[in-house]
Computed example of a mutant assay.
Amino acid sequence: MSIFTANYERPKAFILTAKRIVLIGGPSTGKTTLLNALKEKGYPCLDEVSREVIKAAQQEGIEQLFLTEPLLFSDKLLERRIQQYLDAGALDAEYVFIDRGIPDVSAYMDFIGQEYPDRFTKANSTYRYDKIFLLPLWRDIHVTDKERYESFEEAVKIQDELLKTYRSCGYTPIEVPKVPVEDRLDFILKHMTL
């Protein structure tokens, strides 16, 4: 059989795993807007999964599961983020951009002062990302809604916990400047090869 046939499979040793690139930042820092811009450029992107967990709980009559049962919420979130991590590695792409990573779960638990099982911190060290981009707090774009209820002052504290958690996991987040989305996009793409 010719290696040029359409159904040729590369030997497993040559299959590349997509690099997992995570966008982090407190609420309303522009992560979703930036992710949408990356999608428009054709890059595979994985959306924030916490909104799915929140909406599912709201359909069951629980308005804010994170506030009423933070450990249950975080367990569901951790499970979905691990699955998202695995899904990202299976994509046939050079890069996959992800809105928030696994360490966000323990950072948010630290933010509210909630104790959590060791499996949270073990997940942080087991599932490693290739690059972390931090979107800084930006008061001008901060908004709240049914799923995003944190005030700007709370967002500052969340940002601090995110930075502390990711740094304790051995990451050095690259800060994205507060500029229009196209310039943010260019900044990230330029830093992909550094």
Rank of each mutant, 00 (worst) to 15 (best):
Met1Pro: 10
Ser2Trp: 07
Ser2Ala: 10
Ser2His: 15
Ile3Pro: 09
Phe4Glu: 02
Thr5Tyr: 05
Thr5Glu: 10
Asn7Ile: 08
Arg10Ile: 06
Arg10Gly: 04
Arg10Met: 13
Pro11Thr: 07
Ala13Val: 15
Ala13Arg: 14
Phe14Leu: 13
Thr17Gly: 05
Ala18Val: 00
Lys19Cys: 01
Arg20Val: 00
Ile21Met: 10
Val22Cys: 03
Pro27Glu: 08
Ser28Ala: 15
Gly30Ile: 12
Thr32Met: 14
Thr33Arg: 07
Thr33Glu: 12
Ala37Leu: 12
Lys39Arg: 15
Glu40Gln: 14
Glu40Met: 14
Lys41Glu: 15
Lys41Pro: 06
Lys41His: 12
Asp47Cys: 06
Asp47Ser: 13
Glu48Trp: 07
Arg51Ile: 11
Glu52Thr: 15
Val53Gly: 07
Ala57Arg: 05
Ala57Gly: 03
Gln58Asp: 01
Gln58His: 12
Gln59Met: 09
Gly61Ile: 03
Thr68Ala: 01
Phe73Tyr: 11
Ser74Lys: 05
Ser74Gly: 09
Ser74Tyr: 04
Leu77Lys: 01
Arg81Ala: 03
Ile82Lys: 05
Gln83Glu: 14
Gln84Ala: 13
Tyr85Phe: 15
Tyr85Leu: 09
Leu86Ile: 12
Asp87Pro: 06
Ala90Asn: 14
Ala93Met: 11
Glu94Val: 07
Glu94Arg: 01
Val96Leu: 07
Phe97Met: 12
Ile98Ala: 02
Asp99Lys: 06
Arg100Phe: 11
Arg100Glu: 10
Gly101Cys: 03
Gly101Ser: 06
Gly101Thr: 03
Ala107Tyr: 06
Met109Phe: 04
Met109Gly: 04
Asp110Glu: 13
Gly113Met: 08
Gly113Val: 09
Glu115Asn: 09
Tyr116Leu: 11
Asp118Pro: 06
Asp118Arg: 13
Asp118Lys: 11
Arg119Trp: 03
Ala123Glu: 04
Asn124Gly: 01
Asn124Leu: 03
Ser125Leu: 11
Thr126Val: 09
Tyr129Lys: 02
Asp130Ile: 00
Lys131Cys: 04
Ile132Met: 02
Ile132Glu: 04
Phe133Glu: 00
Phe133Gln: 01
Pro136Thr: 12
Pro136Ser: 14
Trp138Thr: 09
Asp140Val: 11
Asp145Val: 11
Asp145Cys: 10
Tyr149Thr: 10
Phe152Met: 03
Val156Asp: 06
Lys157Val: 04
Lys157Trp: 00
Ile158Cys: 07
Asp160Gly: 08
Glu161Leu: 05
Thr165Pro: 02
Tyr166Cys: 08
Arg167Phe: 03
Ser168Ile: 03
Tyr171Cys: 03
Pro173Val: 07
Ile174Lys: 04
Ile174Asn: 02
Pro177Asp: 08
Pro177Gly: 01
Val179Lys: 14
Glu182Leu: 13
Glu182Gln: 13
Leu185Cys: 04
Asp186Cys: 00
Ile188Ala: 08
His191Val: 01
His191Cys: 02
His191Ser: 02
Leu194Pro: 00
Leu194Phe: 01
Leu194Met: 00
